[in-house]
């Protein structure tokens, strides 16, 4: 099973987590079976509008089942739902910490109304 985690650089498990989803620099596509990681550049990063939707398209094409993110906009939430990808809320520092938290099963689903005033 694969999950996507937005990151700010591509330094393996030490990669820093991005502080948003649609405008993150990269996505770490993590295969949980063997912890192999593929970094893909986020084509939506500099979009004028609809970055969240394009970012969802990108991770959907990578066939992930979940995203682990600190923040999500309304359109990204809707598109993730449409793509049948679960979204889990996590704020941390490194890619390793996000994977560990996901494996520990301690993450909660994003509320359907988004992150409110944090976004």
């Amino acid at each position: 099973m694969k999950i996507a985690i937005p990151v700010a650089n591509t330094e393996g498990l030490n990669a820093s987590l991005a502080d948003s989803f649609g405008r993150a620099d990269y996505f770490a596509i993590v295969e949980l079976d063997d912890t192999s990681i593929e970094f893909i550049a986020n084509p939506a990063r500099q979009e004028g509008s609809g970055a969240g939707i394009k970012a969802v398209q990108t991770v959907a094409n990578a066939k992930v089942k979940s995203v682990v993110v600190p923040r999500l906009g309304m359109k990204a939430i809707q598109a993730l739902k449409d793509a049948n990808i679960s979204s889990l809320e996590f704020t941390g520092t490194t890619l390793q910490s996000a994977i560990d938290a996901f494996r520990a099963g301690q993450l909660k689903d994003f509320p359907p109304e988004g992150c409110g005033n944090k976004h």
Partner: peptide, 23 residues
Amino acid sequence: CVEFCEFNALALLGNRVIVYPEA
């Protein structure tokens, strides 16, 4: 259509194209 849309108002998710009209 997804590829064409400059404003990312369309996405091909699963087996259907979805419209995000507000975009």
